[in-house]
């Protein structure tokens, strides 16, 4: 065996380590076994039907969707402005500002979760949906800024200047030239923010009011007993759903890339 073959085999083993556990989730979602374990005794779609009839899970999905969309909207709106300032403007203390914008990435999630809970409780905000939303926005914001910044850096400000020299006001020029060119990055940033919110669990456990569950905390609560086939079914839906969104996002990026280069 050449060393290249050994390397290839090692790489294959790592990919198996990364993805076989997820394959087990999907397989067991279709198994008739009552207690969600191997060996698979038969094939059924019952667990998916159970999911659809489970009010707690449906409520959690609704909460997560609303929270994710609100997080995406707010953090993208705030993030695009900050990214514009960082890419299009020079000012004293810029490196320092860049550090502040990345600060939420550098503080461990559990510390941010605890600190925000303590401070907002002191301000009179209890564990609630607004607290959840504020926390998710802070988690998502640095990622949104980085994504939009990366795209803005490649955008020539000459378009905006050209529009202005043709008589557009600065605001018009921005909305008619830069913003449309920035749309793919805005969507990517929003998708990022949505995913971060939809996936968040540690902060959410600190901030959520009693009785409210998001999808991850609902799964977490269901895991307290053991892995039920229903959890596997939910996991299968989420994994397959994520892969589909991922592929759609990828092809969308490809299309916009070709539009840009053609």
């Amino acid at each position: 065996m050449t060393s290249r073959t050994v390397l290839g085999l090692a790489t294959g083993a790592i990919y198996a380590f990364l993805f076989l556990p997820l394959a087990a989730v999907i397989l067991l979602a279709f198994a008739t076994n009552q207690f969600g374990g191997f060996p698979i005794e038969g094939v059924t779609l019952q667990w998916f039907a159970d999911l659809w009839a489970n009010d707690a899970i449906l409520a959690a999905v609704r909460t997560s969707l609303v929270l994710g969309l609100a997080t995406a909207l707010i953090s993208t709106a705030i993030g695009v402005l900050a990214a514009l300032a960082m890419v299009r403007h020079d000012f004293p203390g810029k490196a320092w500002v860049a550090g502040v914008l990345l600060a939420p990435l550098l503080v461990p999630e559990v510390v941010l979760a605890a600190a925000l809970l303590l401070f907002l409780s002191w301000m009179g905000v209890p564990r609630s949906f607004p607290l959840l939303l504020a926390g998710h926005v802070i988690f998502a914001l640095p990622f949104v800024i980085l994504v939009i910044q990366a795209r803005l850096t490649g955008l020539d400000p000459a378009y905006e200047d050209a529009a202005k020299s043709l008589g557009a006001s600065p605001v018009q020029a921005f909305f008619r030239t830069t913003l449309p060119l920035l749309t793919p990055a805005l969507l990517a940033g929003a998708l990022f923010a949505f995913t971060i919110s939809f996936d968040n669990i540690t902060g959410t456990l600190f901030w959520k009011p009693g009785g409210t569950e998001t999808v991850p905390t609902q799964i977490y609560a269901m895991l307290r007993d053991s892995v039920s086939p229903e959890v596997n079914a939910l996991g299968a839906v989420m994994v397959v759903g994520t892969v589909l969104v991922f592929l759609v996002g990828l092809s969308a990026m490809r299309v916009s890339y070709h539009e840009r280069t053609d």
Partner: peptide, 27 residues
């Protein structure tokens, strides 16, 4: 792309998936 894919897949599902592998009736 496959290396980036796990970032998008639910963290709790990825964690929980190990129960199916290592559990008493796991793989």
């Amino acid at each position: 792309l496959l290396i980036v894919l796990p970032f998008w897949i639910s963290y709790i599902i990825r964690t929980m998936s190990w129960i199916n592998v290592l559990g008493a009736s796991g793989a």
